[in-house]
Nucleic acid binder design. Structure first.
Lengths: 349, 349
DNA sequence: CTGTTAGCGCATTCAA
DNA sequence: TTGAATGCGCTAACAG
């Protein structure tokens, strides 16, 4: 029956919120003056300024964000919507955006949509609620309508990734076809002409894109496309492992291997090594993504970085520029070129 | 001289903000009623409810977050402060918090402090500005004073990691000593008694902690501590590689190796394999962290997970519970036990 | 059950 | 240069 005294020990003592009015009183000026001093606006008398600053200090005044937002119609917050924060790619993207935002005094709100389209909708709604001044959306599910509806609300928005044509919003995209080309060109450039290819899940966009890059690079090098060099995995390590299994079965020799992503490349290398095939001496391998594991495998994996952090940084830059410009201006489109990162798995000799 | 027409094509057409008053007028009711309907509060007439909902729909009304926050003194936002979002550990932590927050209708603001203490200060300030209702701080720099000052502002806060004694805030910590013990126990349990140890940078807390776990586990197994089994790296892959170099030089045989983190374990395995030592047949290896690369190495790496996501989840849970409880109640302390994840690098036989 | 009204804390207009 | 007054959009307390 001692319940009456429970939870009292550390009870929160409500610190009476000190407002701009308290500061004004203490400094012997009006609230308007305090506001002006705090925002360094208009000419304010040196003495008054000092008294106000003193009162702020003494009272421990700290401005109320909600009130300021309500009045200014600015939250100084932007949102980033990604499918899955747990995926290192998106985590890196978040870092890029965060840095850029922080540098401009903005805070970042993160929404991990889980690929769920209703979650995305929800996130964009918070934008409409003016909980944030703008948003960066990275998702495969951004439909034209979705973006349109938001854009019409006069909100600033930037999309990372593919976008339906004719969407009047800022956009950062990636030339992934060029990425695949870079990989193959690198392999061919080191004198290996029989270049195998482990692509991802057939029917997906990434599959399509990498296929195009692979074919174009070969064509440009004057090498005929041979489908016996090509196998498909499901973007997992096991998928890569088994794809090489099949490639090996055909007994068609190859001296290089381009894999649609690093995980499959790692699986592929494992399979090759288990067959006694030396990487890179007998077969050079190149992956795509530049995941952390690529730096730690044996041998370390040559790969094509898709520059997630950089794309995040650019998206942040575009969005912030738009915000500072009042939302006006032509939609900006930026295309980022992937970058080849050379490591041991494709070394020559 | 056509500047006058520049940037006009896509000029933002300010959609006149539709407010609760507009809805009220359209529905033929008062603003109070609209507010009640929107918040499902008190009994409202079915017909009125319908008319209001209709008006909301027709006008495309969306509540203004700032105004609501100002009035309710609640932002429905919480913050997470981590040293570096780019570090997968913290990214995972963020995922844990985010999930928990989203489930309760809260948004997550992320602050990557870069280990910079002033950044942390800044983050906590946004807390004081009532930009967020509460914060989770994960950092080595949380000083007692810092936490105290914030706690006094009646804000809810939860710290992940070590905390000065007597800090009256919620706290989630990790029993890392036990983590090291788990690793060594696993090794010893598989019949290997000569357990080498690659520790991290001497003089750091993680070094201290793992050392303790290593010694305790050995002692408990009745194995004498032998310093010739121990080397130190700097938590990098190269560090692990070179540490094994030294271990090999001493020519003191060992049949198992515990490494203070996965990166060093990967480096260690590489060095062992280059010396023709088979892992796990001749030497079993266990790391710590469970980074992505641990699942992709050859052999895959047995490791001790520090459960970052889980800690984030728990921290979120504690914070949200406190928020819903009005901030009152005893500070909660939760200790998470690391988890052994068995893979190929420590297989028996 | 619903309408009216008074602020929440601040920025900003208009006077002085 | 400064003070007074108004309202941002919404919730909640009070009347009816």
């Amino acid at each position: 029956m001692y319940a009456g005294r429970m939870n009292r020990t550390h009870a929160v003592q409500k610190v009476p919120h000190v407002t701009i009015a308290d500061v004004a009183e203490r400094a012997g000026v009006s609230v308007g003056t305090v506001s002006r001093v705090l925002n360094n606006v208009e000419n304010t008398g040196a003495d008054v300024r000092l008294r106000v600053r003193g009162a702020v200090e003494a009272l421990g005044y700290v401005p109320n964000h909600a009130a300021r937002s309500l009045k200014r119609r600015l939250t100084m917050q932007i949102a980033l919507v990604v499918p899955d924060l747990g995926n290192p790619v998106y985590a890196q993207m978040a870092v890029g955006v965060q840095r850029e935002a922080a540098a401009s005094g903005y805070h970042l709100t993160l929404v991990s949509s889980g690929g769920d389209w209703s979650e995305e909708r929800l996130a964009l709604q918070s934008l409409e609620e003016r909980q944030v001044d703008g948003a960066i959306v990275c998702s495969l599910n951004v439909t034209q309508n979705l973006v349109r509806s938001v854009a019409e609300h006069a909100s600033s928005i930037c999309v990372i990734g593919a976008l339906p044509l004719d969407c009047p919003v800022d956009n950062v995209r990636l030339d992934s076809v060029r990425g695949a080309e870079l990989a193959v060109e690198h392999l061919v450039g080191s004198g290996r002409r029989r270049v195998g290819f482990v692509n991802g899940t057939p029917g997906t966009v990434p599959h399509e894109v990498r296929d195009r890059g692979y074919r174009q690079a070969l064509a440009r090098a004057g090498i005929a496309y041979d489908e016996r060099w090509v196998a498909s995995g499901d973007f997992t390590m096991t998928g890569g492992y088994e794809a090489v299994d099949r490639l090996l079965d055909t007994r068609v020799p190859f001296e290089a291997l381009f894999c649609a992503n690093d995980m499959m490349a790692l699986g592929a290398m494992r399979r090759l090594q288990e067959s006694g095939v030396s990487v890179p001496r007998q077969v050079a391998v190149v992956g795509m993504d530049d995941i952390e594991a690529a730096r730690m495998s044996t041998p370390t994996l040559t790969t094509v970085s898709l520059l997630a952090r950089e794309r995040g940084r650019i998206a942040g830059e575009l969005l912030l520029r738009r915000l500072s410009g009042g939302g006006a201006g032509e939609p900006q489109k930026v295309t980022v070129l992937p970058k080849l990162i050379t490591r041991e798995s494709s070394a020559v000799g």
